[in-house]
Design a binder for these strands. Structure first.
Lengths: 198, 198, 198, 198
DNA sequence: AATGAATGAGGATTCATTCAT
DNA sequence: GATGAATGAATCCTCATTCAT
């Protein structure tokens, strides 16, 4: 009685476990779009719908709001880490990749520097660690022997936050230009703004 | 047992129809507190309760969510305008006042430059005009004969947005220092960070 | 975006604050029926629907599951207390009233002795205190000077629990007879089984 | 980050198709534990997980909720039947075994007498027959030539239900004492409270 | 003009059950 | 025969907003 007693007649096909990987990918894609359009407060149900999966599938893959957001941010950070680890990486080059991500999804990179700014994402401290990973990546991209003092590192991350502030709220079209203007105001050189491709 | 709704917080008794102006003020104060505690997503009912008024009163004064937020920002902007209009105003001085407001309520001033960033405040475009008013105020604070080119003005507002980015997500304690660091990175001189008082 | 932005067109009439008392009564009546039919696990939404009110109204009057159940049980207990407090009350008479309530809503009186039996109602300990109130009422119904030892009181409440066990799960028709049989097996005299009417 | 489902509790590796019987036993054991911890509303998925099998296996063995619960009760009843069938069985002795089961899993034995009491287990009427089996077992335990009249039999089962009522809701520690107190109030002699062991 | 109850849509989350592999 | 992912209905609960008084 208490529970779901209406098994119904025809279900719209169970695509089987094979669909799992595809579903997860679809969810990530959908989440990226939906977050971009509606912000991090977007209803999860919308993401599930957009991905073409049931609510349950979303919860299976991402047990809570944070897990979903973390999965998105994670990918951004991984790209930046890869760019930093690549042969011949330079700070300017990595900042270019970072800027590309900021321009693509300002709200998310902005989140790196604004945990809890809107009353969410306090718990896991995940953005803290993501922020640290970005910081480490930037450090690693410096020329051999070139070390950043603590204050320098802090300033660099502050600069990143400032660029995020610059693009926050701008339309997708304006973002890249704004980011470049921001780096210019800071007097920091930035390489080509583009995704990292090994 | 636990039958009746919620006992409310402060409830200074119905002060009768005359209190309209007082009610508005109480709502603004309450909103500022509530937004600070719970973020912009805070339930309007909480604001009404905190202000000690009925829900209807809130709607009488502020027809929608945006009107409420706009009223908060409005006060910030008015202060900045006053600072700019004052005898002997300087850009650095006005930026000090602006920075004080950023440090006080980073999220709200940040909104100035981030309309719609989190899926809100699309409709009225009010922040556009608030932003323009800030821009005008900054211009007016320049020495007579000193005019800002369009690009310079744009850069200045971008810098303001960047400082907002720098303080977003920081704790109340850290904000002022971060803002000052940000201005330093931009190489822009800022006067004492304090509210404007005639 | 995040919240309920679809105010819709025509609402089915707001019957105004006057409806409050009526709504509460309707909810209590509906809850009694629904609990009887579906048990304490019944969906609250069903109660609201049965009462002909919106979900919100239910939550306004009864902030949580327990509050709803407590309201129902409360009424039963109050009746028993009244019966015990009446002029010329006797133990047998009060037991008759108590038995009437057991026969009417076995599950609920049963709850008196089975807090948490089904994984709910742990928190407020309300059933504990309701049980104590029944115990006190039974004590008060004893002839002047006749005091129940602690063990006797415990036995009496145990007997009440046993009668609840006897009627639990029986159909509405069988309950009264079963209860009387149970009291007979216990060798305890019970007055007429009927509600208390001053 | 927190992407994959739930890591499960015990997971003794896929034991292949041969394990059917073992799976069933594992499910029964798990169900007993889970029901004890979470009540009859416990999610079936939890039982499957605890048993270390997939959801599908649970459904293979127990087509619905009731089948699961019935399997648990079945074991209790079988024990009682064995006790009654044993050489030299006495009513008091069998009641002792029955009481042991009541003390162990009050809720379940209580169900014997409370089908549908909480909105469940209407369909199969299985508890009816389980109840009848208990009744027959008790009858068989009487001395040769000693027959129970219909009313006496009914009273005896009522007494069993009453003892269930007495222990319902008590903590595991209190149950045995309460059950014994209940039998004492009924004036029925009960042998040692212990499981039946041939 | 103020009050606060009513309304119900919306979004989160949980499971029972099915079924591809 | 086992596994465990997919599905989505159902329930919970929260507010934005209206409106009788």
């Amino acid at each position: 009685m208490t529970q779901h007693p209406t098994p119904d007649e025809r279900r719209p096909a169970n695509r089987g476990p094979k669909a799992a990987a595809g579903n997860r990918a679809a969810l990530v894609t959908a989440a990226r779009e939906v977050y971009a359009e509606h912000g991090l407060d977007a209803p999860l149900s919308l993401i599930a719908r957009r991905a073409g999966v049931g609510q349950g599938v979303l919860y299976r893959h991402f047990p809570d709001r944070e897990a979903m957001a973390a999965a998105i941010l994670e990918e951004n950070v991984v790209e930046i880490e890869r760019a930093a680890a690549a042969e011949g990486a330079t700070l300017a080059g990595v900042l270019g990749v970072l800027t590309w991500h900021q321009a693509q999804s300002a709200a998310f990179i902005g989140l790196l520097h604004a945990p809890g700014a809107f009353g969410r994402f306090h718990s896991h401290g995940f953005s803290r660690s993501l922020g640290e990973r970005v910081e480490r990546a930037l450090r690693e991209s410096l020329p051999e022997g070139h070390r950043l003092g603590a204050q320098d590192a802090r300033d660099l991350m502050l600069a990143v936050a400032m660029v995020s502030g610059a693009v926050t709220g701008a339309t997708a079209e304006e973002r890249e230009q704004r980011a470049l203007d921001a780096w210019r105001l800071l007097g920091i050189e930035v390489g080509p703004v583009r995704p990292f491709e090994g």
